Computed example of a mutant assay.
Amino acid sequence: MFFYKESNDIDFGETTIPNIFIDIYMPMGDGLYTKVYLLAYRQVCSSIPDPKFDNKSISRILEIPLSDVISAWKFWEKQNIVKMHKNDTLDDYDYSIEFLDLKRLYVENLQVNTTSIKSNSNRIVSAGENPSITKMFNTINRVIGRFLDPSEKLRILDIREKFNVTPDVIVYAYELSKRRNNGAPKNLNYIEGILRNWYDLGLYTIEDIEKNIIEDKKRYDMYRLIFNALGFNRQPGSEEKRIIDTWIDKYSMDIEVILEACSKSKNTPNPSISYINGIIERYKMNNVKTLEDIEKVEEEFNQKKQQRKSNTSNNTSAPKVKTRFHNINETFRNYNPDELEQLLKESQKGKF
């Protein structure tokens, strides 16, 4: 396969683009950014430049927002191949653009590391040959409302390799970030944090991630129910979460049983998760699984408590002290009525 150019005597003018831009910088930029650069570069290379040509002209010709034109110039300025000069007007988009000499930058190697840039550019180009990667970058652009710059693309590629995730999962992380932050997606550090957490949890597919999110929401709802029952208007701490997770995961306690335990703190001045944990531990020891089990345990507990109280009352009664009256009574129990009457008569002799 060959590429060749048809010769023609008609001259419409030509714009010479340095190969360093085509080989090194163009692969780094988004297609729209490249269009902005080339369209403006054509004007500065024209033998008869249009004095009215400005950023608004580029916006109109390419049919893009003026803000996108300025974003393109900021990108190229970051690559050190143009300089933006703010004009002395109230218009925030009124900039003059100075195109730097790419050949001088290449030869003097003052501001660019061409080897590194070339290597990174090749990596981005190579990745772009994968349709799923191209789709990923384009979708992320739409989610964040701007174009990813090359450094972000390279980092996303690094993250993809580090955590062994698919492009769809990376896009899902961006979409989730946007939903969680009221339509404003977080930066790449935040996205990497999400992907690292999924990697640590062994979540590699969107299906696994969504199941985990549902389970997390259920658990959060349980935390909220328990804290509302205790009158807490705050989020649980890590240790409190650990204790509650133990009730649910290790002890398999039903939420109704846990809430019933929380109700026992109504007369407690300073209820706490630790206090409720004592109740739950007692439930576990008694194999409590339902509200009916709680009634049985409490009934047995009350019966034992009443029995202990009764035994304590009997054991603490005043000891019997024998007196002469007791001796008399005991003596009398040894005689019948006739014998007692005879004894009484005998005892009265000589007293009258």
Rank of each mutant, 00 (worst) to 15 (best):
R180V: 02
K211T: 13
N233K: 14
G183L: 03
V112S: 14
I213N: 07
D158R: 13
T166S: 15
Y174L: 05
P131S: 06
K186F: 02
T205W: 07
K217M: 12
W198K: 12
K118Q: 09
V125W: 08
E215N: 12
R160L: 09
N212E: 08
R234A: 06
S132K: 12
R242C: 02
R234V: 02
A173F: 10
F227Y: 15
K186D: 10
G183I: 01
T205C: 04
G183S: 06
R242I: 05
M136V: 07
Q111F: 14
F232G: 00
L148P: 02
N197D: 14
A173S: 11
Q235C: 01
I159K: 08
R155M: 07
Q235M: 08
N181F: 11
R179N: 12
G183Y: 02
L176F: 08
A184Q: 13
K218D: 07
E192A: 09
P131V: 10
F163E: 04
A229L: 06
G128I: 03
E207G: 04
L176T: 14
T114W: 11
T139E: 10
L203Y: 14
R219N: 06
T166D: 13
Y204N: 08
I214V: 15
S126L: 10
R179H: 05
S177P: 07
E129M: 13
Q235E: 12
N212C: 12
F137L: 05
L157E: 06
G128Q: 10
V171M: 00
Q111E: 15
T134F: 10
N189M: 13
P150H: 15
L110C: 06
Y220N: 03
N164T: 11
S119Y: 12
E210H: 01
Y204T: 11
L148H: 06
I194R: 07
G193H: 08
G128R: 13
S116R: 12
W198S: 07
R146K: 14
F163S: 02
R146H: 10
Y174V: 03
G183H: 04
Q235K: 13
V171N: 05
N228L: 14
D149C: 07
Y174W: 15
G128M: 11
F163H: 14
E240Q: 11
Y199W: 09
I133P: 01
I144G: 03
S177V: 08
